[in-house]
Design a protein around this nucleic acid. Structure first.
Length: 478
RNA sequence: GGCGGCGUGGCCAAGUGGUAAGGCAAGGGAUUGCAAAUCCCUCAUCCCCAGUUCGAUUCUGGGCGCCGCCUCCA
């Protein structure tokens, strides 16, 4: 399976070539843990999970790192400004580190609810100050950075490729700079590597001074290098990270290490809400709890995200979420029917088995083509339609289709794990279900509607779905 | 001001130079004691204009509209 991905850096779709055969090392820009991430944030994290799942499904060994930014940075690169975490802390009248703990726990709980496979490392910026200082010192040593008092800036003029990722030109950054003029910098586009301010709560004593804290890009360079090396395969983030964050990371890491930092840069477009940007003032910044309150599982949201390509803006409305929920439920229902059919022992038709093979190829081709998840999902429904139209209930075909659904589930994350029914003492055995259905048929024939409905309700309560078709009663577990 | 994306049926969303996947919703029908579930059927010519072409939704140019990034933000 030849995977192809769009590389933000080259602006082209490229064949994926891992640095080490069979292995992939990825870094994902994670959340700033100053308030609970909203569903928009999770689009980017679900994308990281999709990559993880795709690589694992196609046999790669994955090393995945996602940082937690717990050292809020300045509000902007022009300097003065308040640390985001400290601002939140003052508002809540708590210690900033307490916010970090609380939000981090919410974050991990949300990831779990979304079915995200845990990354191998979730490093925190505050635990990697020495690593950051090492890089900054190297940059100064090599003439890529300069000190002004207790502050350190990256000298953009020493890195000709600056602007390559984002398409910005240094001259235009200067011209169109909305940044306030910082007299300390040699060039307006220079960015801070290290800042000092005695008033900060979250600060560290280093060679640069007693009251310092890192600039807002250096943490990722430091942590990526520590866990993945100076050169690794993939780095992801939201579209907003392209500039300045990732642009600056490239400059820092490549200037310091004198080698390519990352082979493949991938960015997700923003999630829209009601056709526009989500914002607190519009009251459309939702958390997973807001979805749950309206009866939607995190998995429904996950499916909504999957139904749009990661490089297009996906819109979120309650109607769209409902659509995603219904669609996903249909897939789950189909899976249950296939499980019942697999036990049925009916003969297979060769044409149907061929349809499963075709569907699997279509699914894989869609995924391999820059993660075309909408098309991959469509391939599943196409197969469903074909098998249903053909009235196919063959054991082998059902088994093959189920194998495809398992594969799709591994890649996309479609089905919410449910408690194992076999461990439920109240669960009905197949024989019990069959017996109840038989009794219902008898009492219906005798027009004993009360008892018939009682059985129907009991079966429904036990998670049994009945289908009263012309060819008899079929059933499967929901 | 700089950079970028998008405009496909009521909603969402793939896609290809040769007349448009899939999902949701909707309408009709079958089945049914009622219901649910299920099954069948119906439902677009792809923003507008011009050009290239035998032929464009798909290529080029222009227009209109929408959205995003450039500033904390996934």
């Amino acid at each position: 399976m030849e995977l192809r991905f769009y590389n933000s850096y080259s602006r082209q779709i490229e064949d994926f070539r891992p640095i080490e055969p069979g292995k992939v090392r990825m870094y994902h820009c994670g959340p700033t843990v100053y308030q609970r991430p909203h569903i928009g944030n999770y689009r980017a994290f679900l994308f990281a999970d999709l990559l993880r799942r795709v690589f694992e499904a196609y046999g790669f060994e994955v090393q995945q790192v996602m940082n937690l930014t717990d050292v809020g940075h300045l509000l902007n690169d022009a300097d003065e400004g308040e640390d985001k975490l400290e601002a939140q802390a003052r508002k809540d009248q708590v210690d900033p580190w307490q916010i970090v703990e609380t939000v981090s726990q919410q974050f991990f709980a949300d990831l779990d609810a979304l079915g995200v496979r845990p990354a191998h490392h979730y490093p925190r910026a505050s635990d990697h100050i020495p690593e950051m200082v090492t890089i900054i010192e190297a940059l100064i040593e090599k003439g890529h950075a300069y000190r002004v008092g207790d502050n350190v800036y990256f000298d953009v003029s020493t890195f000709p490729r600056y602007g390559q990722l984002s398409g910005n030109k240094v001259e235009e950054l200067e011209a169109g700079a909305r940044l306030e003029i910082n007299e300390e910098k040699r060039h307006p586009a220079d960015f801070a590597l290290w800042k000092s301010d005695p008033k900060h709560i979250m600060k560290w004593a280093t060679v640069f001074g007693e009251h310092g804290f890192p600039g807002w890009h250096i943490e990722c360079s430091a942590m990526a290098e520590k866990y993945l090396g100076k050169h690794f395969d993939i780095h992801t983030g939201g579209e907003d990270n392209v500039f300045p964050h990732h642009e600056c990371e490239i400059a820092q890491s490549e200037a310091a290490n004198e080698q390519t930092f990352v082979n493949l840069w991938m960015h997700t477009r923003f999630l829209q809400v009601d056709g526009g940007k989500m914002s607190k003032s519009l009251g459309n910044v939702y958390s997973l709890d807001d979805l749950a309150e309206r009866g939607y599982s995190a998995w429904d949201y996950r499916f909504l995200v999957l139904r749009g390509h990661y490089r297009t803006q996906v819109n979120f409305t309650w109607e769209i979420l409902r659509s995603a929920k219904e669609s996903r439920a249909k897939l789950a229902d189909w899976r249950s029917r296939l499980q019942a059919a697999m036990r049925g022992g009916a003969a297979d038709s060769p044409a149907s088995i061929g349809a499963v093979t075709t569907a699997r190829q279509a699914f894989d081709a869609a995924i391999a083509d820059d993660l075309n998840t909408p098309e991959a999902v469509a391939a599943l429904f196409t197969l469903r339609n074909e098998l249903v139209h053909a009235g196919e209930t063959g054991t082998g075909t059902s088994e093959a289709a189920l194998a495809l659904l398992d594969h799709a589930d591994a890649v996309l994350g479609l089905f919410e794990p449910t408690a194992d029914a076999s461990e439920d003492p109240n669960a009905l055995s197949d024989a019990q279900v069959e017996a109840l259905i038989a009794e219902r048929a008898e009492v219906r024939a005798a027009k004993n509607w009360a008892r018939a409905d009682e059985i129907r309700d009991a079966l429904q309560a036990a998670g049994i779905v009945l289908e009263d078709t012309a060819s008899g009663v079929h059933w499967h577990r929901s």
